[in-house]
Design a protein around this nucleic acid. Sequence first.
DNA 1: TTGATACTTGACCGACCGGTCATCTTTAAG
DNA 2: CTTAAAGATGACCGGTCGGTCAAGTATCAA
Lengths: 203, 203
Amino acid sequence: MAAMNVEPNTRTRILTSARVLFHGRSYADVGIKEICDSAKVQKGSFYHFFPSKRDLAMAVIDDMADDWAHGFVAEAFDQNLRPIERLDYMVDAAYYWQKAAKDIEGRMPGCLFGNLALEISTRDEVLRAKLNAVFNKTSSRFRETLDQAVSLGEIAPLDTEATAQAMLAFLEGVILLAKTRNDPEVIRILGPAIKTLRIERMN
Amino acid sequence: MAAMNVEPNTRTRILTSARVLFHGRSYADVGIKEICDSAKVQKGSFYHFFPSKRDLAMAVIDDMADDWAHGFVAEAFDQNLRPIERLDYMVDAAYYWQKAAKDIEGRMPGCLFGNLALEISTRDEVLRAKLNAVFNKTSSRFRETLDQAVSLGEIAPLDTEATAQAMLAFLEGVILLAKTRNDPEVIRILGPAIKTLRIERMN
DNA sequence: TTGATACTTGACCGACCGGTCATCTTTAAG
DNA sequence: CTTAAAGATGACCGGTCGGTCAAGTATCAA
């Protein structure tokens, strides 16, 4: 209670504002001026913490990747859940998150990483690689889950690595489609099909 | 032969240039100046044909949607192919297209519709709806295919509408992932899993 | 030949973009 | 109390953005 309502430091405020704005619109569409206004920071102060907009983008990705990894990805891949249940949990989490965002903002923001990937990965190798690393990390959680499911005999053996990637791709695709429809329900309806995805091992 | 090398008219040149540039980078990142230079057109001439950049975007979407529908979507969903084969054909077509683009440009452009959807669908309702319509049309081709597959007894009955949407989502997701990795092979490896997607009918 | 219309030209506009900088205030170590 | 560094301020910069416009030229029907 004592530490409530403490204004976060300047750097954090910039980071948070940028994240929200980038997520809600796009990288190119949000200017530094707008980020500064939103974060109640002066422009010169912004450049005291970030050398450029591009560096800000990198920091935003790192920041979000952290929250993501320690947030609902960690929850969804809870080791206490049965492997298959974790997949459902992941879809549910995505659904509720997007639904909450839409209820507040009126529009489905989609996945920040997916958004940025399609927008800037053709223009900036470094950012592309960073986004790619986030995806790799996420798909490795899917892979662990599948490995365990196979070990426990819950599913027939398969190419867990490829299937994990396919599942991540499916999740991103579903979110993309839902965003285009501006309807989170798409995630709830299509999402569960993630469990049917299979890529066989080839020997 | 007689009509070879005919310079297309101004409007078409603008449209083509814009399409290529938007596809290769992004909507926001490509300026009208650059489009005009690429199309060998003066700026004032541009605004003779298109009231605004936004209207150009609409025209580009329509234009591409046409080519798309009459191009490889029409081919892939060739009625002479067995339904299941059409799914493979679609994946193959996506793979070869992206691979060709990467070999030429060095980078995977991904799907223009998916790119635009994530970039601008939160900002422009009309464009969002247009993109959504393209997706709907495409998923209905998937649906026809699934309906036929069920009729022919090639696959067990399922919710063809939902599964069709899931397949489109998967395709978009796979292309997104491949673009982020900048590696078309992702499409070839993960793509075939599209055939394993299933959403059961609920009665 | 005339006149209207389609199209082209390139200079021009204000607004905004990412980024800089000299100057000031705050903080904290010694 | 001194001093140096960290942080905050806001005016300022060149460049580019989407878009405008007055003045042309090409086309074609009557």
